[in-house]
Design a protein around this nucleic acid. Sequence first.
DNA 1: CTGAAAGCGCTTACAG
DNA 2: CTGAAAGCGCTTACAG
Lengths: 355, 355
Amino acid sequence: MTFRRPAAGRATSRDVARAADVSQALVSRAFSGNGRIAPETRERILKVAAEIGWRPNALAASMVTGDAPLVSVITTRLSFEWRAQVLSHLLKAFEDWNLQPLLFYADSDREVDRLLAETISWRTRGVVVTAGSVSRERADAILSRGQFLAALNRPGNHPDAFSIATDNPAGGAAAAELLLAEGRRRFLVLAGPTDSWASTERTRGFAARLAQAGLVATVWHNTSMTAGAGKDCAARCLKELSGSLPDGVFSTNDAMGLGFIDGLRSSGLSIPEDLSIVGFDNLPASDWTPYQLTTFEQPLDVMVGGVLGHIQAHQSDEAGEPTACSSQGRVGGDGVIYCAPLLVRRATTRRTNNE
Amino acid sequence: MTFRRPAAGRATSRDVARAADVSQALVSRAFSGNGRIAPETRERILKVAAEIGWRPNALAASMVTGDAPLVSVITTRLSFEWRAQVLSHLLKAFEDWNLQPLLFYADSDREVDRLLAETISWRTRGVVVTAGSVSRERADAILSRGQFLAALNRPGNHPDAFSIATDNPAGGAAAAELLLAEGRRRFLVLAGPTDSWASTERTRGFAARLAQAGLVATVWHNTSMTAGAGKDCAARCLKELSGSLPDGVFSTNDAMGLGFIDGLRSSGLSIPEDLSIVGFDNLPASDWTPYQLTTFEQPLDVMVGGVLGHIQAHQSDEAGEPTACSSQGRVGGDGVIYCAPLLVRRATTRRTNNE
DNA sequence: CTGAAAGCGCTTACAG
DNA sequence: CTGAAAGCGCTTACAG
């Protein structure tokens, strides 16, 4: 039997069928495992296909079945530790489930809405959002198609969306609690830009707890939440607040906190004798010898687990009972499941009496 | 005119056509911009489609045109700084070019070959590999389909593949050069696992340069290239080599180098008086006050630029002149474009005379 | 400028 | 166990 082998890039199931001397339908069955096929026939087809270098065209298959094994993921700068970590976990799970992630990269949060709209073109099973925010209309558009919508560390803004986030206000409050228990009274918050949801919520929780004690904190906003910004804050602190230095510092992320510590090194101030510092994120560096920063760790595993659970529930049950069970944390009035961050005590705070 | 609006998830161009009272073909033209269509008609169709929440099904469109605007990206743990950074750049460029990245996550390097095979199912324009290695056969299979194959920081193993990498041996040699110029004579290399291409190449370049001076280095391999591993090496160093401590340490990545510095803090040894340390990667932390690590920075922008250039060339010219121009670096015998890393001098090495 | 029709590469009832 | 045929939702010549 002779035949012109087509260029691999153009080969179709029909070419494989011809080469294996079977019908095109059998080729499909050989690969999908659906429908009856004699074991020998299957073997032969698989062998021929391998020679030609052919695999079923997933695009075409998805069209027929009306269901592509794709999931949209909206993300942005991966240099933010938590996002890279979260994404690694998500991607690994998708790989295990034979779901192919289609990435949508938002250069700025403003682009997220447009990307959310673009996801629709690909008829994916749903979308995981790890950047920007989701409008009610957009959420509606996605959910009404039967897709899932999972928002990580941000509100889903829709009763049927799944949304899970670090309980930032609780973390902020716990930071305040800790510093108050140490007897601290002059507070400084190293915050991020005012449009950073996480930083704002952490600051809010911190301030609220202080307010209960009739105290207030100075809040410094930084454009970027980097170590450099934290270091600059330390310099500013020594200059502007030299009359009454803060004795309790809450940095809404670790990077700024680490920089702040560095900025204080030549000042003669000692930590935690003169002042305590609490961060947020538990970066690897926070555990390094020169820092030993007390901080809060985001329960990323719990959050990723929640998202994966929701996706799984969506897959197995399109009818879709409301999946937002509160087992992972408290459910806020906004429908977000809030997971408590974990306090990691190190050397930038004192041990208090009741421990 | 009345009609049952279909569930959004199931709406097709036909439904939009019906609602706008035009043929289905016109709906396609309204969105694609191909073919003639009256501006008013187009407006109307767009409006109706927006109401229904319909967008062309990219899967179906790709089938017809035989060309999906997709590109496969093979990656792995994003916590490795360089990969997250590189991926951010790549994804942003794809977004700008209206290419949709399909991610393939390799939990271990051994899975990469399987993932490479899986990319074929999606008929993407090509594949970018940032993990594991590419076999000659697999490269052949991909390239013969007319797809591009771009390997980042690893060999492409095929004359038609594009491959660009940090010149690790040159970096290792430069590290040796630096330490030799300082008059160092007893060398220790903090290396990674033996199957880490980058670490091995860096070590090789380092050793080769030393050999020229008739010197050798002790090489310690670590399972994971973390700060913790580096710290352990310092302890081991103080214990096992106390008789003749190394005076020149080359850490094949910064993380281990930083940990090594931490491990030495209580030893009384001072850097760079007693010993010099050179790292690789230029992590943000390497510039922090307690470290100030001299290191080499990978030319990631150049490398990403090279990959993007190759993809662009592939898009505009399927005929495919060999794109591997050496403007970005030296071309190795393996066809890899090697880009020199950038030395960043800080305080863990001495200033030498000839500067 | 618009529409009817063919066809992209598959999967899946339906016959045999 | 196997094959012929319909059809997934589009795009694109081809007529009109």
